[in-house]
Amino acid sequence: MEKIKVIIVDDEQLARDLLRSYLSRDPRLEIIAECGNGFEGVLAIQEQKPDLVFLDIQMPKITGFEMLELLPDPPVIVFSTAYEEFAIRAFEANAVDYLLKPYPLERVQVAVEKAMKRIQSGTGSKEELEQLTQAHDETTGLLTRIVVKSGSKIRIIPVETIDYLESEDDFVMIYCKEGHFLKQKTMKFFEAHLDPKKFIRIHRSCIVNTTQLAEIQQYGKESWMLLTKQGAKLKISKSGYVALKEFLA
């Protein structure tokens, strides 16, 4: 029988050591890579296509959750973190598992069994991961950065460099200093997680960074356009105009 390919992603050497020593006792598993940060993690997962990933959440560069946002077809994930900051129940309810550091061997074995079942049944964990990410989204405060992928490169966009965001089917296009990038999130998510003191939804399909506002022009009786400092022209809806006026008052 072919071995299950495992990748460990954790920024602490000692944490990786411990997990490796646990996992190496299971002959069904083969650890194919260990990564010390999210960038390496994304690359290793894309290139080596593991069946199972043990993923830390707080890491330099990008977090475990941000990593998942960048993977279109993620493998089975077992999270591990030191402290239950967010809706831990959401994790418990799911087939993929969630380990709290420090964890005993038995607990890791339980996680491995759950993961094995998931891998053998062949059903993707995408849906559950989405639930997890959503549970995480609900507990995050305001965003300071957005992680996107352009080609094979991972980019971290600080929110203050964003000019505006526009919805594009199921995605959101982020326009910023460095260009524009697609992100699989909803406008609703961004509206809720961008600082309302800086970002305003001026239209159903557009959120603008008010520090980039150059001019508001009126076209018809109830039609306005917003000009950004970069020269982009954005439509303002009636309710968007009200919000904007309130903001500028």
């Binding site: 602490e12 411990l18 020593s21 030191a82 420090p102």
Partner: peptide, 18 residues
């Protein structure tokens, strides 16, 4: 800080073996 505490305990768990 609970992060600090639990991560440290995890490091200790790892070190007891290695």
């Amino acid at each position: 800080n609970p992060h600090f505490l639990f991560n440290s305990l995890n490091s200790i768990a790892s070190l007891t073996m290695t």
